[in-house]
Design a protein around this nucleic acid. Structure first.
Lengths: 242, 242
DNA sequence: CGGGGAACGGATCATTGATCCGGTCCCCGA
DNA sequence: TCGGGGACCGGATCAATGATCCGTTCCCCG
């Protein structure tokens, strides 16, 4: 007896000097989220498990639950964290259109940089980064003279458009989406008589196609918003009512 | 020995007359999908498990794998199946705008009728129902005189817009989304100084708000598409090129 | 009527999210 | 200086789930 206690992990002399293991910062919620993002970027959404994440952090899987309540928390935190990279244009009173375009484009870029995020869009986004950018969007529109119900419609329309676009592109572009697209093209050709138009104008091929399509749709939306402002102001001046 | 063979399920006399169990149709892929949709509608996406699905069908869970390769297959099939409810307007050459509006609105209605579908939008949709409706969309736009690159941009823009809108609304409307929205409103009020505009123009409240916002954004997109056609045709007539 | 493929399901496995509970580390006050 | 307690960690373990193995039953066709 004495050689083998119940919980002692080996002989004293073999244990590290009790401080070596502390070289790394003591695991924080931030480190967990950062590592989760790295893991998601490298391996995709379905490869993220608490065990794997813990392993990459050099800790036990159960330790994570001290800093985070559930796996969903990790996902929510990761999702909000990536939006920190979206620069918020400074409000300049003029040229609201440029500001909004920049914001929305940045939003899209982030979603495409982290394709796993698209699959997570179906959850409430209430993190500080997302809210700050929504606030900017609303404020800018309001400042531009957009009034209800156009204000809400514009904010939601723009958000929904980016989300949908990123979701679609991530689906067909990321990971095995590439292979799927090839198979789809093949299928269109096979069912050429059933889907003649689709067979001719197949799925988007190059990145630039995605980009120009996105830009066009965005400009249409912004034109629409612009028109409501024009109409309101001209009516305000008392000229043409309709 | 003799009373208890290895695999025989009880005494012969206790077994049903070997035909009673066959009153129900013999389990087909279609029945599985239909039941899956019912289950999803009633209990949501995360409650769908192969076991529970099998139980509702009165079969063993492993039997499902004879008709379907994976659970993902079930989801893909269910997702495509619900779009059968979207009526395809008959092509009438005139008034392409009405046709597209009808299609897109029907699309949205289906997504909202089955809120679980929103979470599944991040996968390739290549089922026959989806393809047929995409074909109609492309064909109608083409017929209306929309040309590349506006054609692709219009088709994708419209699709993305519906998808994003439905995803967003389902997130905040379905199930616990309601509760979340209340909490969100609360939070805006608390952080009033950080999110002044959001606090004032809170999340959408009534269904009609969602509807009108959606309709407005859709009309802006269609206006944009319409403008490209106008411009092309006027340029064709050789009048004002700009 | 008998063979064979279609259809079925019990037992079982690996993975994963989450919890229990006991151990370790470190700061802070007496 | 010392000891108590809270922050932090992780091995063992549980329940749920997707999926497979393999033996059994059903039923059509020659």
């Amino acid at each position: 007896m004495g050689t083998k206690h119940s919980g002692s992990p080996g002989d004293v002399w073999l244990r590290p000097p009790a401080r070596a293991a502390r070289e790394a910062p003591p695991l924080s919620r931030d480190r967990i989220v950062a590592e989760a993002i790295a893991l998601l970027d490298e391996e995709g959404a379905d490869r993220l498990t608490m065990r794997r994440l813990a392993e990459r952090l050099g800790t036990g899987s159960t330790t994570l639950y001290w800093h985070v309540k559930t796996k969903n928390d990790v996902l929510d935190l990761a999702l909000d964290a990536i939006f920190a990279a979206v620069e918020i244009p400074r409000a300049d009173g003029q040229d609201w259109r440029a500001g909004i375009t920049a914001l929305i484009s940045g939003w899209r870029a982030v979603l495409l940089d982290h394709p796993w995020s698209a699959a997570l869009l179906g959850r409430p986004m209430l993190g500080p980064n997302v809210l700050a950018r929504s606030e900017f969007l609303y404020a800018t529109l309001l400042d531009a003279g957009v009034t209800e119900p156009h204000l809400t419609a514009a904010a939601y329309g723009l958000s929904n458009y980016v989300i949908g676009s990123a979701l679609m592109q991530a689906t067909w572009t990321a990971g095995e989406g590439q292979a799927t697209r090839a198979a789809a093209q093949e299928r269109f050709r096979a069912d050429r008589d059933r889907y003649p138009v689709l067979a001719a104008h197949g799925p988007l091929a190059s990145d630039s196609d995605w980009d120009t399509s996105f830009a066009l749709g965005l400009s249409w939306l912004l034109d629409g918003v612009h028109a409501t402002v024009e109409e309101a102001s001209s009516r305000g001046r008392g000229s043409s009512g309709k």
